[in-house]
């Protein structure tokens, strides 16, 4: 039995020591990726913990068809994306959206309403992360996995549970959208 197999077996036996080791190994990765997608520190704190609870509860069902790392990436991305989806639904039905003149901009998974200058003015002063907030959630996830984590398209396909061609399209569209959104900023039209 190799080291990873032995480790997974310890997790399946619900050995606390192994879980604490798992947390130490993957907490930085999950914090980094989830934060880049949801752009909210408090939510990231909760979501990262929820991923580990999910590992605790479902490790018995981990079939070891992918590496543990890929599986953890997948759980993390799913958590982040489903959080954004719920947030969009909440925002869509909130009174704020109905009655407020000013549209909320923070963390929308795909905000057609807000613009780069709104986000820039209100919350984020790094052009790249501000522009990322304008991307649909799946494109944002694919871009983060590609540009930030340096994963290959086949690896991203495994994490997102989709085809390589779908990943290629997601990453391509993400980059095109970023160029479009960032162009006015780098032309000094947004300050």
């Amino acid at each position: 039995m190799n080291q990873e197999k032995a480790f997974i077996q310890a997790l399946k036996n619900k050995e606390e020591e192994a879980f604490n080791q798992l947390i130490a190994m993957y907490q930085p990765l999950l914090s980094r990726v989830i934060f880049k997608i949801v752009s909210d520190k408090d939510e990231t704190q909760d979501l990262v913990q929820e991923v580990f609870i999910q590992v605790w509860e479902s490790i018995a069902f981990f079939k070891e068809e992918s590496s543990l790392k890929t599986w953890i990436y997948r759980l993390g991305i799913n958590k982040a994306l489903s959080y954004l989806k719920k947030k969009d639904i909440r925002m869509a039905i909130s009174f704020h959206t109905w009655f407020s003149e000013k549209k909320p901009t923070e963390g929308l998974s795909s905000s057609n309403e807000s613009t780069l200058s709104d986000i820039f003015r209100n919350e984020d002063h790094n052009a790249i992360s501000a522009a990322l907030k304008l991307l649909p959630a799946q494109q944002r996830a694919a871009f983060v996995l590609s540009k930030q984590e340096g994963l290959s398209n086949p690896e991203i396909a495994t994490v997102l549970n989709t085809s390589i061609s779908a990943v290629e399209s997601l990453v391509f569209r993400a980059k095109q959208r970023l160029v479009k959104e960032l162009l006015p900023y780098y032309q000094n039209k947004i300050s």
Binding site: F19, N20, F35, Q45, Q49, N126, Q148
Partner: peptide, 14 residues
């Protein structure tokens, strides 16, 4: 900057 900027969640145990 975007790549390097990261948020680290507080430490916790299972």
């Amino acid at each position: 900057n975007w790549r390097e900027s990261s948020y680290q969640t507080k430490a916790f145990t299972i």
